[in-house]
């Protein structure tokens, strides 16, 4: 079968089945959260931009935010045939790219995104099995739904698989 990489851009989410893989290119402070059912082999990836829809109110696309986005992703995966108790999650991203002064909102956005993703997953009762977050480098991630592995590439660094 031909393997297709489906790209998940800023504030998007996608669901797929093997042999297709999901990827997000160039994550900085954004976080890529992969949720999958290892038995049914259904997986989804979301590219989160901001921590919470509650801070901004209605009129915004729900997939921009960790809280509303992950919850929508989980609903969609279950609708596609996954079983909620079997769902697992992995995530990567949340870096701080510019060493701006610490009171600037862009200095903390990565960290706040990661925290909100963790909280949301915990609230939904989904086990976060692995993560590669923080730091000062951008990441490109490839999520293999067949194996549940998340391959992480950063410039000038060896590839990592979680």
């Amino acid at each position: 079968m031909i393997k297709t990489f489906l790209s998940v851009d800023i504030a998007m989410m996608k669901i797929a089945k093997p042999p297709d893989q999901l990827c997000s290119l160039g994550l900085g402070s954004c976080v890529g959260v992969a949720v999958y059912d290892p038995v049914a082999k259904i997986g989804g990836l979301i590219h989160i931009l901001l921590p919470s829809i509650k801070e901004l109110g209605p009129g915004h696309s729900r997939t921009k935010f960790a809280d509303s986005g992950i919850s929508d992703l989980v609903d969609a995966i279950i609708k596609a045939g996954a079983s909620k108790p079997r769902l697992k999650a992995k995530m990567a991203g949340g870096a701080t790219m510019f060493s701006v002064s610490s009171n600037s909102p862009i200095a903390t956005i990565g960290k706040r995104n990661v925290e909100s993703c963790r909280e949301t997953l915990a609230c939904l009762g989904i086990e976060l099995v692995a993560e590669d977050t923080g730091g000062n480098s951008g990441r490109t991630i490839y999520f293999d739904i067949e194996t549940g592995s998340l391959r992480i590439k950063a410039v000038d660094k060896p590839e990592k698989i979680i």
Partner: peptide
């Protein structure tokens, strides 16, 4: 402010500012 410099993937360098726009 003073200028800040970063060498990395374009997606990653714009993501924090994209968050600001996203608000």
């Amino acid at each position: 402010s003073i200028p800040y410099l970063c060498v990395d993937m374009i997606g990653s360098v714009i993501s924090a500012t994209a968050s600001e726009i996203g608000k």
